[in-house]
C-alpha cells in the first residue's frame, strides 16, 4: 500500500476515532516525569516537547506491579481467581523505535519455554504507533545496535515528522487495517516521501554516542574472569534499581503474596539484579559483591541474551546513562573491556 500522511492538526480527531476501539496512551508529563498516560481526549501538545518517556514502554505491557490472582481458603484447598482482564486493547501513540525494539526483545523471553499470559495478552491485542525521533538525546546510542531513531521494524504504523504533517507507513497488517479506516489520513505525495527520507537521514546523524558491538562480542566473554576490571568499574555504583527498572528490556520480577486471614492476592513486581538480595539463597549468595552484580547485568545484556535469542538485550535508549545518580555509563564500561591477553584470572 502506498504511504499516507496525517496533518498534525488532525491528530486529536484521529486519536478520538482510535479511542473508540482502543485504550489509547500518549506521552504525558507528571511533575517532570514523562510516561504513558491514557489520552484525556484533548491534549496533543506532547508533539512539541516529547523526546522519550522516563518510564520505558514495557510498563504498559509489563507494569511495575500487577495482581496475578486472588486466593481464598476453600475447605482443604484454595479457590483461585484470575483478575478480570477483558480484552486489553491498548494503543500506544508515539512509541520510539528503541522502546518498540525492546518489546520485540521482551517477547522472546515472555513467549519462550514458559508463555507469560499477562504480558502476551496485552501484546497480542495491543497496537504500536511508532514515532521517529528528530531530536535524540546525547545519551542515545541506538545506531550502534542495528537500529536508528526512525527504525520502523517493530511497530504497526510508523510516523515520520515532516513539518506540519506526519508521513504514515503501514508496517504490519494490523497497522494497515487501522490506517485504512482512519478517515483523516490522505495519500502521501512524492515530495512528502523525499522530505521523510531527508528527516530519517538527518536523525541518524544526530546520534553521536557509539559502542562497538563487534569489539564487545570479542572481548566480553573472556573479560568475565577479570575480577580487577569489574571491581574497578563497580566502585562508584551504588546498587540502586534505576538502570534496571528504567531499562526497556529488563524483565526480572519478584512475586509476593499479601494475605489477610484466609484470603489474599498474589502480586508480581519489577525486581533488579542490582539488589544484593536478588540472588540471596538460604546458605549462599553468588552475587553478594557489587562487581559481580554489575558484571551480570552487562553480560546478561551483551553476552547471555545473544546466546539464547541471537539479539543484544539493549536498544541504546540511553535511560541508564542519563538517569543514573552517579553517572555510571555502560557505554564506557563496554568501550574499556580488557583484551583477552591482558586478563588476570579471578581468584
Amino acid at each position: 500500500m502506498a504511504n499516507k500522511k496525517i496533518n498534525k492538526k488532525d491528530v486529536a480527531g484521529i486519536l478520538d476515532q482510535w479511542k473508540q476501539e482502543f485504550t489509547l496512551f500518549v506521552p504525558s508529563r507528571d511533575e517532570g516525569v514523562v510516561k504513558w498516560a491514557k489520552w484525556d481526549g484533548a491534549d496533543t501538545t506532547f508533539m512539541d516537547w516529547y523526546r522519550n518517556t522516563t518510564i520505558p514502554s514495557k510498563a504498559v505491557f509489563f507494569p511495575p506491579m500487577e495482581e496475578m490472582f486472588s486466593f481464598q481458603k476453600d475447605g482443604e484447598g484454595y479457590h483461585i481467581e484470575l483478575p478480570a482482564s477483558g480484552e486489553p486493547k491498548q494503543l500506544i501513540f508515539g512509541i520510539r523505535p528503541c522502546d518498540a525494539k525492546a518489546l520485540a526483545i521482551l517477547d522472546m523471553t515472555f513467549s519462550d519455554a514458559y508463555e507469560d499470559p499477562y504480558y502476551l495478552a496485552r501484546r497480542k491485542s495491543g497496537i504500536l504507533i511508532g514515532l521517529g525521533c528528530t531530536n535524540p538525546c546525547d545519551s542515545c546510542f541506538c545506531t550502534s545496535l542495528g537500529s536508528s531513531p526512525t527504525d520502523s521494524a517493530n511497530v504497526d504504523l510508523m510516523l515520520t515528522d515532516i513539518g506540519s504533517e506526519f508521513l504514515v507507513e503501514a508496517i504490519s497488517d494490523k497497522g494497515e487495517e487501522l490506517i485504512a479506516k482512519t478517515s483523516a489520513a490522505q495519500a502521501a505525495t512524492e515530495a512528502d516521501e523525499v522530505r521523510a527520507r531527508e528527516e530519517v537521514k538527518a536523525a541518524y546523524g544526530k546520534v553521536t554516542r557509539k559502542i562497538d558491538t563487534e569489539d564487545i562480542k570479542k572481548k566480553l566473554p573472556s573479560s568475565f574472569e577479570d575480577k580487577d576490571y569489574w571491581e574497578k568499574i563497580a566502585t562508584k555504583c551504588i546498587s540502586c534499581g534505576i538502570c534496571t527498572f528504567l531499562c526497556p528490556t529488563c524483565y526480572c520480577f519478584d512475586i509476593n503474596d499479601e494475605r489477610i486471614k484466609s484470603q489474599g492476592q498474589r502480586f508480581r513486581s519489577w525486581d533488579s539484579c542490582a539488589f544484593c538480595l536478588y540472588t540471596k539463597m538460604p546458605v549462599e549468595n553468588p552475587r553478594e559483591e557489587r562487581w559481580r552484580r554489575l558484571r551480570q547485568k552487562v553480560c546478561h545484556k551483551y553476552e547471555f541474551y545473544p546466546m539464547s535469542f541471537d539479539v543484544i538485550a539493549c536498544t541504546g535508549c540511553g535511560r541508564c546513562v542519563r538517569l543514573c545518580p552517579v553517572n555510571w555509563d555502560i557505554t564506557q564500561t563496554l568501550a574499556n573491556l580488557p583484551a583477552q591477553e591482558q586478563i588476570k584470572q579471578e581468584k
Partner: peptide, 15 residues
Amino acid sequence: NEFDRCLRCYACRSV
C-alpha cells in the same frame, strides 16, 4: 499522588 509514582528503585536509600 507523589508516592503513586514511586518505583521502589531505592535510589533514595542507596545515595
